[in-house]
Simulated assay, not measured.
Amino acid sequence: MFNRFARSLGICVIGLGALAASDALALDAPSGPVILVVSGAIGTTNVGDEAHFDRAMLAALPQHDTLTHTPWHDDRIRFSGPLGRTLLQAVDARGSRMRVTALNGYASTIPVADFHEHDVILALAADGEPLSVRDQGPLFVIYPFDDEPDLSNKLILSRSVWQVERIVID
């Protein structure tokens, strides 16, 4: 009797785990203007073989704040947005590097490891205000420069892409 109950319970737990996993992999289609397209070696898509995000979709991901100085601002700024690794998880990224491209065509290659080893965010806001294109938005790759001073170097600064519109994982 106990074995049958344990087996039934195990099947229910496995079923719930599969249901939770399938929900975690679901990515709704954007309802507003697309501000980010992620493509390449990803397992979760919502438009063809790409993952398209509007501002609301990115804001719905768990948010993280980074209070830091940057070379492009006079004061310390509180940047807010999802952690890069959260975005990678949302699209089931399977590569080791990313090509991050800005609206003006500037691009930088960033190791996926950066997003896992540091609290790098895709900033949607600065000091509580949504980032506009005029303010280096709609997305800005922000490293935690004040928390990790070793990141304040030319290589990492070149990876701090603003006006991000596309990420290609490979």
Rank of each mutant, 00 (worst) to 15 (best):
D65T: 13
T66H: 00
T66M: 09
L67P: 01
L67V: 14
T68Q: 11
T68Y: 05
H69D: 12
H69G: 04
T70V: 01
W72Y: 07
W72Q: 11
H73F: 10
D74W: 09
D74P: 01
D75L: 07
R76V: 14
F79Q: 04
F79I: 08
S80L: 02
G81Y: 01
G81H: 05
G81K: 03
P82T: 10
P82C: 09
L83E: 15
L83I: 07
R85I: 03
T86L: 10
L87A: 04
L87E: 04
L87N: 01
L88F: 08
Q89P: 00
Q89M: 09
A90N: 02
V91H: 04
V91R: 05
D92H: 08
D92F: 00
D92I: 00
A93L: 02
A93D: 00
G95P: 06
S96F: 11
R97P: 01
R97S: 15
R97F: 15
R97K: 15
M98T: 13
M98G: 01
T101D: 10
T101H: 08
T101P: 04
A102W: 07
A102V: 04
L103M: 13
N104D: 15
G105I: 08
G105R: 10
Y106G: 08
S108N: 12
S108P: 11
S108H: 12
I110G: 03
I110V: 15
V112T: 13
A113R: 15
D114S: 09
D114K: 09
F115R: 03
H116I: 08
H116V: 02
E117H: 14
E117K: 14
H118L: 06
H118A: 07
D119M: 09
I121N: 04
I121Y: 03
L122E: 06
A123G: 07
A123R: 06
L124N: 03
L124Q: 11
L124G: 06
A125P: 01
G128L: 07
E129R: 15
P130C: 00
P130G: 02
L131W: 02
L131S: 04
S132I: 03
S132H: 06
V133P: 01
D135W: 09
D135E: 15
Q136T: 09
Q136N: 14
G137W: 10
G137I: 05
G137D: 12
P138W: 02
P138L: 05
F140A: 05
V141L: 08
I142P: 02
Y143M: 10
Y143S: 03
P144F: 07
P144I: 09
F145S: 10
F145G: 07
F145H: 08
D146W: 05
D146F: 06
D147A: 15
P149Y: 09
P149G: 11
D150A: 14
D150N: 13
L151P: 11
S152P: 00
S152N: 13
S152D: 14
N153K: 08
N153V: 05
K154L: 13
K154S: 15
L155Y: 12
I156A: 02
I156Q: 05
I156H: 03
L157E: 13
S158G: 13
S158Y: 09
R159A: 06
R159V: 11
R159G: 07
V161N: 06
V161R: 04
V161D: 02
Q163V: 03
Q163S: 14
V164S: 02
V164K: 01
E165N: 13
E165M: 12
R166V: 00
I167F: 05
I167S: 02
I167D: 02
I167L: 07
